[in-house]
Simulated scan of single mutants.
Amino acid sequence: MTPRRIHHAAIICSDYARSKRFYTEVLGLRVVAETYRAARDSWKLDLALPDGAQIELFSFPGAPPRPSWPEAQGLRHLAFVVDNLDAELAALTAAGVEVEPVRVDELTGARYTFFADPDGLPLELVEPRQG
């Protein structure tokens, strides 16, 4: 088996309209498709990143909350590469998103920070070390 790249990550949200606004307006992801599935009373929003990877945003009535703190087993967080971490932090802060202090990865030298989506899902921005 030789996977080549991540195709998509799927996220189940508690408030579809709030999460749709966050991922499209705050993070600026492009909508590929939006589907309402009446049989499941569920929305599915396909969002694209510039490299072709996608996020599938789902709403399911009655979905239980995800335990995050203390850190739970399973997917720890979703990380996005950015070219200018300071500019992205300014945009998030201007949108009212709380962002953790910037740290430097001791192994790679990359600058990074964490913030959360509307349901508390940990998201990370990574600015790879230049040079």
Rank of each mutant, 00 (worst) to 15 (best):
Y16D: 01
Y16T: 05
Y16L: 02
R18K: 11
S19D: 07
S19F: 07
S19T: 12
K20C: 05
R21A: 10
Y23Q: 09
T24G: 07
T24P: 05
E25W: 02
L27C: 05
G28V: 02
L29S: 02
L29E: 00
L29F: 06
R30D: 07
R30N: 03
R30H: 07
R30I: 03
V31Q: 08
V31T: 15
V32T: 06
V32Q: 09
A33Q: 10
A33G: 04
A33V: 06
A33Y: 09
E34L: 05
T35K: 12
Y36K: 10
A38R: 15
A38E: 09
R40M: 11
D41Q: 14
D41C: 06
S42C: 02
S42F: 03
S42N: 13
L45R: 08
L47K: 15
A48H: 12
L49Y: 08
L49T: 07
L49E: 04
L49W: 04
P50L: 03
P50F: 00
D51S: 14
A53T: 14
A53N: 01
A53D: 11
A53L: 01
Q54S: 11
I55M: 04
I55K: 09
L57K: 15
L57E: 13
F58Q: 02
S59G: 15
S59V: 06
S59D: 11
F60V: 03
F60Y: 09
F60H: 09
P61Q: 14
P61R: 07
G62Q: 05
A63M: 02
P64V: 04
P65D: 00
S68K: 08
S68A: 04
W69L: 09
P70W: 15
A72E: 08
A72I: 06
Q73N: 11
Q73R: 13
Q73C: 09
G74K: 11
L78H: 01
L78S: 02
L78T: 08
A79H: 05
A79W: 13
A79T: 03
A79F: 05
A79Y: 02
A79D: 10
F80Y: 13
V81T: 11
V82H: 04
V82M: 01
V82C: 13
N84R: 12
N84E: 12
N84T: 15
